[in-house]
C-alpha cells in the first residue's frame, strides 16, 4: 500500500538518522571499556584501565572540577538575570524595548570565536584574563540569551489577569512576583538553568581564549587531543555523557513539555 511505503521510508530514514547521531557516542562508550590503544577493530578485551588512568593522571578530573564550579555558577547568575529581565519584558512597555530585545539575541548570533577575541583583549586590560572568574563572567553573557528565551516563553503563557488578581487581592508588586509569578515560571526557570548549564558546560572557544592554567573541561580535552590520541578521553567522555543523561532526564520532565506544545493544547 502507498501509505505504508511513505511511512516505511520515513522510519527507515529515522533509523539511519539515529545511527548517525549515536555512532560517536557508541564508539566513545565502547572503547572506554576496551583495551585497544587506538580505537578500532578487532576489539582487544574489556578493561577499566582507562578510567584508572584518568583518575591517576588527574588533569581532566581537575578540569571537570573547574567546569563544575564555573558552569553552575554561570547558569545560576544567568538564570536570575534572565528571570528578572524576562519578567520586566513580559510586563512592561518602554521606549527601546524592541532594540533591547534585538540586543539580547545578538550574543547568539555573534560567533563565540569573535566574542572570545574581544573578551581576551578587554579582560587582559583589567588583569582578569586567565582566571576562572573570566570564564564565568563571559559565559554568563553568552548563556543569558537562551535562558531568557525559555523564561520568556514560559512567562508569555501566563495570563496577565493572574498577576492582576494578586494585586487586586491586596498583594504588593513584590508579593505578586514572589507568590504568583515565580511559582508559575518555575518550570521555565529550571529549564532555563539546565539549558544555560549545558551551554556553559560545553563552551570551548571563549574558554580557550580567556582561561589560563585553570582550564575548563572542553579546553583541557582539546589540549590532550591535539597532543595525542589517548583512550582516557573515551573514559571522561563516557562519564560526561552519563552526567548529561541525568540532566537530560531532568530536561525531559521539566523543559520539553513547554517547548513543544501544540498551539491548541
Amino acid at each position: 500500500m502507498k501509505r505504508n511505503a511513505w511511512i516505511g521510508l520515513g522510519r527507515l530514514w529515522l533509523g539511519l538518522a539515529y545511527a548517525f547521531m549515536f555512532l560517536p557516542l557508541v564508539v566513545l562508550i565502547l572503547f572506554s571499556l576496551q583495551a585497544n590503544r587506538f580505537p578500532g577493530f578487532p576489539l582487544q578485551g574489556w578493561t577499566l584501565q582507562w578510567y584508572a588512568r584518568l583518575f591517576d593522571d588527574g588533569t581532566l578530573i581537575a578540569a571537570l572540577g573547574h567546569t563544575m564550579i564555573v558552569s553552575p555558577a554561570a547558569a545560576s547568575v544567568a538564570t536570575i538575570i534572565a528571570f528578572l529581565a524576562g519578567y520586566a519584558l513580559n510586563r512592561f512597555t518602554f521606549p527601546g524595548k524592541t532594540a533591547l530585545l534585538g540586543l539580547v539575541t545578538l550574543p547568539i548570533i555573534i560567533p563565540p570565536l569573535i566574542l572570545g577575541v574581544g573578551f581576551l583583549g578587554l579582560l587582559a586590560r583589567i588583569h582578569l584574563s586567565g582566571t576562572l572568574l573570566a570564564v564565568f563572567l563571559t559565559h554568563v553573557v553568552l548563556i543569558t540569551a537562551p535562558a531568557l528565551a525559555i523564561i520568556q516563553l514560559r512567562l508569555s503563557q501566563m495570563p496577565k489577569a493572574l498577576e492582576e488578581a494578586a494585586w487586586d487581592l491586596g498583594a504588593s508588586e513584590w508579593q505578586a512576583v514572589r507568590r504568583v509569578v515565580l511559582p508559575f515560571a518555575l518550570p521555565g526557570i529550571l529549564g532555563a538553568w539546565l539549558l544555560a548549564f549545558t551551554f556553559s558546560f560545553d563552551e570551548f572557544i571563549i574558554a580557550w581564549f580567556v582561561s589560563g592554567f585553570d582550564q575548563t573541561l572542553p579546553v583541557a580535552i582539546y589540549s590532550v587531543l591535539v597532543a595525542a590520541i589517548d583512550p582516557s578521553l573515551n573514559a571522561i567522555g563516557t562519564i560526561v555523557f552519563a552526567m548529561s543523561c541525568a540532566v537530560l532526564i531532568a530536561l525531559e520532565v521539566l523543559l520539553i513539555p513547554y517547548l513543544i506544545r501544540k498551539p491548541d493544547a
Binding site: A161, A165, L169
Partner: peptide
C-alpha cells in the same frame, strides 16, 4: 490597586494554578 477595597472576579477566573482551592481562597 492593592490598597483598594474592591475585589474583582475575572471572566476566566484567574485562579492561581500552583495553589489548591483553600490556598486560592486564603491568598488575600
Amino acid at each position: 490597586v492593592n490598597r483598594r477595597t474592591t475585589r474583582l472576579v475575572w471572566q476566566n477566573y484567574a485562579l492561581f494554578p500552583h495553589l489548591d482551592v483553600a490556598g486560592n481562597i486564603a491568598f488575600g
